[in-house]
């Protein structure tokens, strides 16, 4: 995927990361945490143009949950409120043991997609989210068994090597779908040339999704649209609409990136179009 995809009028898939597992309502009170709030947010972002919702689960007090039952409650709420949006579960979880990391894959039905972190990243001052190759392979194996499309999360350039390693170790269905992530800390430095380099480094025929954390969300989404990729926005990655102004909702962030895409001449993919582009099972 490249600028050619932009010239070819390929629609852009907008993913909305609704809640996340790091910050919560203490950072922005508009961030949805309960299943009902997440279900309503999913419907709102679908109406705004998102075709994929990226989901984490939380306890009633906003703390992280990895339990299958909690993901099931959220999925049920999403399907109750939204029409046809693609459900993507996170399998991320700093500090969580390997068996716990598998639990989000075991809902009924399984999510159509799930994230797969490509390697280690530092958290705070004394913690590393390890994401060993053994865990990545184990999560991928269960995704294959359950018909789940992996979204390969590339937090830095080293993870591009890990993506190639995964492709050598395991049989990945086409298209390989990589999310290129830019921001502080262990992430790739958020510079345009680094996005271009990452795109150039992807396997042939891979599709890519673009995330910029914090203030980089809008510029990196815009570049992702122009360079023929897909984009992710939402309160998981950025709680502000502009400097000093908290976002009112996930839908507000989706509406803006949809306006940008259309101004740049790219239509936004419906859930059905997104399934075709990603090779998902109907």
């Amino acid at each position: 995927m490249s600028y050619e995809a932009f010239l070819a009028d390929e629609p852009v898939i907008v993913t909305a990361a609704l809640t996340g597992g790091v910050h919560g309502k203490e950072a922005n009170p508009n961030l949805p945490e309960t299943p009902e709030e997440i279900g309503q947010a999913a419907a709102a972002v679908e109406d705004a143009g998102a075709s994929v919702v990226h989901l984490h689960a939380r306890r009633p007090n906003g703390e992280r949950s990895f339990e299958t039952d909690r993901f099931q409650e959220i999925d049920d709420a999403v399907r109750r409120h939204a029409d046809d949006v693609i459900v993507q579960h996170s399998t991320g979880g700093t500090g969580a043991p390997a068996d716990v990391r598998h639990l989000p894959l075991r809902t009924d039905p399984p999510p159509e997609m799930a994230s797969l972190d490509m390697g280690p990243l530092n958290r705070y001052d004394h913690l590393t989210s390890e994401n060993s190759r053994a865990l990545i392979d184990s999560l991928h194996a269960e995704m294959v068994d359950r018909g789940i499309k992996p979204e390969l999360e590339v937090f830095n350039d080293g993870h591009l090597n890990e993506l190639y390693g995964l492709c050598e170790r395991r049989d990945l269905a086409d298209p390989v779908y990589a999310t290129l992530i830019f921001g502080p800390g262990t992430l790739s430095r958020p510079r345009p040339r680094n996005l271009l380099n990452a795109i150039d480094s992807l396997p042939d025929d891979a599709a890519f999704n673009t995330i910029g954390f914090g203030r980089h969300q809008l510029p990196f989404a815009t570049m992702g649209i122009l360079f023929g990729g897909h984009v992710r926005v939402g309160l998981e990655d950025n709680v502000y609409y502009r400097r000093g102004e908290l976002a009112e909702s996930n839908a507000q962030l989706v509406e803006r990136v949809v306006r940008v895409a259309r101004e740049l001449g790219r239509e936004v993919a419906s859930p059905s179009q997104a399934r075709d582009l990603l090779g998902l099972r109907e």
Binding site: G21, V22, H23, G24, E26, A27, R58, G62, E63, R64, G93, T94, G95, A96, P97, V100, R123, Y124, L127
Partner: peptide, 12 residues
């Protein structure tokens, strides 16, 4: 933050 609360509670 939610993630830090797991550290506070010695979870996982």
């Amino acid at each position: 933050q939610a993630m830090r609360a797991d550290i506070c509670n010695d979870r996982y």
